[in-house]
C-alpha cells in the first residue's frame, strides 16, 4: 500500500464505517460485537506491524500496552455517570487518548532496552515486560486487582472501532512511506548499513515502539468499552501471541495482508463454532456431525498455525520472498 492508496483507503473507510454505523442496530448483536473485535484487532495488528514488520524488531508484549490503555481509559470513564451524547463522545475520546499516551510512555520504557538487544533476546524481554505489566495490574487494588474492573459505559461502536482502525492504518502507512519513515525499513533491512549511512537507528527503534504502543493503548481503550469488563488475565502472553500471529500470517511489513489476517483470525474461531453447530448434512445420518469441532477448536487452530508457517512462512498474502538475509 503506498501513500496515495492510504489516503483513498482512509477516506473510504471513514465513509463506509459511518454508513454502516447507521444500520448497526439492525445487525445481530453477536456479529456486531465480532465486528468491534475485528476493528480492534486491526488496530493491534497494524500497530504491531510497525514494530515487528517495518522496523524489524520483535515485540511479544503488545498485550501489555493494550492493558495500559484499557485500564487508563476505563478508570477515566468510570469517573463519569450518565452523560449526554456530545459530552460522552468528548469524555470517551479524551480517555482513549490518555490511554494511548500512557501506553506510549510504557512503549518508551520498553523501547530503551531495544537499543542493545535484538532477535530472540528482545522477544523474551518484551514478553517479560508484558508479564510485568500484567502482574502490576493484578496487584493494583484501585483498579480491582485480580478481581477485574467493570467498565460502566459500553461506548465502543462500529464507527469508533473502524474509524480508529482507519486512522491507525493511515498513520502507519503515511509514516513508513514518508521521507523520514524510510529509515524504519532501512533499520530492518540492515541495521549496520543504516547506521553507517547516518541514520539514527536508536531514534527509529524507539519511535516505532512509542507509536506502536500508542495505538495498542487506543485499542485497549476500545476493548475495555466493548467488553465492559477487564481483568489482568485478559492481557496475558496468549493475547500478545495472537497479535503476533496476525502480523506474521499477513506477511511482515505488508499492511493489507496484516489487515486481512486480523479479520480472518478473528472470524476463524467463530467459523469453527458455526461448523460445530451445523445440525445435519444431507446424506449423513448423525445429527450434529461436527460437534467434535467444539472440543478440538483450539487444537485445529494450533495445527493450522503450524501448517501455515510450514507452507507459507512469508505470510499468507505476501508476494515478496521471505525477508531473511
Amino acid at each position: 500500500m503506498n501513500i496515495r492508496h492510504a489516503k483513498t483507503f482512509f477516506l473510504g473507510a471513514l465513509v463506509l464505517c459511518f454508513l454502516v454505523s447507521l444500520f448497526a442496530n439492525q445487525i445481530n448483536s453477536y456479529w456486531l460485537f465480532i465486528s468491534y473485535d475485528i476493528g480492534i484487532n486491526i488496530i493491534l495488528a497494524v500497530s504491531l506491524n510497525l514494530i515487528n514488520g517495518y522496523t524489524g524488531q520483535f515485540s511479544l508484549g503488545h498485550a501489555g500496552f493494550m492493558a495500559v490503555g484499557a485500564y487508563t481509559a476505563a478508570a477515566i470513564t468510570n469517573q463519569f455517570g450518565e452523560l449526554n451524547p456530545y459530552l460522552s463522545i468528548a469524555v470517551f475520546l479524551g480517555a482513549l487518548l490518555a490511554g494511548g499516551l500512557l501506553a506510549a510512555v510504557a512503549g518508551l520504557l520498553v523501547g530503551i532496552p531495544t537499543l542493545r538487544l535484538r532477535g530472540d533476546y528482545l522477544a523474551i524481554v518484551t514478553l517479560g515486560f508484558g508479564e510485568i505489566i500484567r502482574v502490576v495490574f493484578q496487584n493494583m487494588q484501585s483498579v480491582g486487582g485480580a478481581r477485574g474492573l467493570s467498565v460502566m459505559h459500553g461506548w465502543t461502536n462500529f464507527f469508533w472501532a473502524f474509524g480508529f482502525a482507519a486512522v491507525t492504518v493511515y498513520v502507519v502507512t503515511a509514516l513508513v512511506h514518508s521521507t523520514y519513515g524510510r529509515g524504519f525499513i532501512a533499520v530492518r533491512d540492515d541495521e549496520v548499513a543504516a547506521s553507517a549511512m547516518g541514520i539514527s537507528t536508536t531514534k527509529y527503534k524507539v519511535t516505532a515502539f512509542v507509536v506502536g504502543a500508542f495505538f495498542a493503548g487506543i485499542a485497549g481503550g476500545l476493548y475495555a468499552h466493548s467488553k465492559q469488563f477487564i481483568t489482568p488475565g485478559g492481557f496475558n502472553f496468549m493475547q500478545s501471541i495472537a497479535i503476533v500471529v496476525m502480523v506474521i500470517l499477513g506477511g511482515m511489513g505488508n499492511t493489507i495482508g496484516v489487515i486481512i489476517a486480523a479479520i480472518l483470525l478473528t472470524l476463524l474461531p467463530e467459523g469453527l463454532r458455526a461448523i460445530a453447530d451445523i445440525e445435519h448434512i444431507p446424506g449423513i445420518v448423525t445429527a450434529h456431525p461436527f460437534v467434535w469441532v467444539s472440543d478440538t477448536r483450539m487444537i485445529i487452530y494450533s495445527l493450522l498455525l503450524i501448517i501455515l508457517m510450514l507452507t507459507r512462512p512469508q505470510g499468507l498474502f505476501s508476494l515478496r520472498k521471505s525477508l531473511s538475509k
Binding site: S29, S226, K227, G233, E270, R273, D277
Partner: peptide, 16 residues
C-alpha cells in the same frame, strides 16, 4: 480467556 465470555454469550443469545 477474558474477552471470550462476552462473545460467546452474545452468540448464544443472538444467534442460537
Amino acid at each position: 480467556q477474558a474477552g471470550q465470555p462476552a462473545t460467546v454469550v452474545r452468540k448464544l443469545i443472538s444467534s442460537d
